[in-house]
């Protein structure tokens, strides 16, 4: 089997979980769980990861069901609020919405949580991430329809709360401790 030979220890970039996820997507796209679909899916996934290798993303955390439920529930509510807000803004006549671009320094230094927080922020009310700085875990966020400094500070706080929800859903105890220390340092 070709799929097994490329998975040998010498190909350290080759990661089984990614291949399995991609194979699952392939099977779902074909809409039928059959041997032929699984084998061809494994082959395609192996080729994709051999040709387009991704940088490793370290996930040292653990999934916390309560935190995850809170993250997803809050996200669903936020997405609904954000959609209605933008829709109302689209229909409003008169004053043009004023925008702002602000910097948000996240407290965690993990790529994964940075990406997740950025992804979620874009779908949250009022904010779109337009620039990230990996070295310092900094996000630059575009805000739609802000009136004053208070609006800006409120959104900055919301962005940090979003990061906190991500951390409480996925981070390990050690990561969470480091994150709490960083937050206290930033606040105090």
């Amino acid at each position: 089997m070709s799929a097994e030979s490329v998975a040998g220890p010498r190909r350290h970039r080759f990661r089984w979980p990614s291949v399995l996820v991609l194979t699952a997507v392939w099977v779902l796209l074909w809409g039928e769980l059959s041997v032929a679909n699984v084998v061809s899916g494994l082959a395609v996934a192996s080729v994709v990861f051999a040709v387009f290798p991704l940088p490793p993303v370290a996930f040292g955390g653990r999934i916390r069901p309560i935190g995850l439920a809170r993250l997803l529930g809050r996200f669903a509510a936020d997405l609904a609020v954000a959609s209605v807000e933008v829709a109302v803004l689209a229909l409003r006549t008169g004053r043009r919405p004023t925008s702002a671009v602000i910097q948000v320094d996240l407290r965690s230094d993990s790529d994964l949580y940075l990406v997740l927080t950025a992804e979620l922020l874009t779908l949250l009310p009022g904010s779109i991430v337009i620039e990230t700085r990996r070295s310092t875990s900094t996000l630059f966020v575009h805000l739609l329809d802000v009136r004053n400094e208070a609006d800006i500070e409120r959104t900055r706080r919301q962005a940090l709360e979003q990061e906190a929800r991500v951390m409480h859903a996925l981070a390990s105890s050690a990561e969470l401790d480091a994150y709490r220390r960083a937050s206290e340092g930033a606040n105090g």
């Binding site: 671009v101 630059f140 802000v146 004053n148």
Partner: peptide, 12 residues
């Protein structure tokens, strides 16, 4: 110039 605040400009 239309932005209320622009904290990205100096960084870029």
């Amino acid at each position: 110039d239309d932005l209320l605040t622009d904290e990205l400009s100096p960084a870029v």
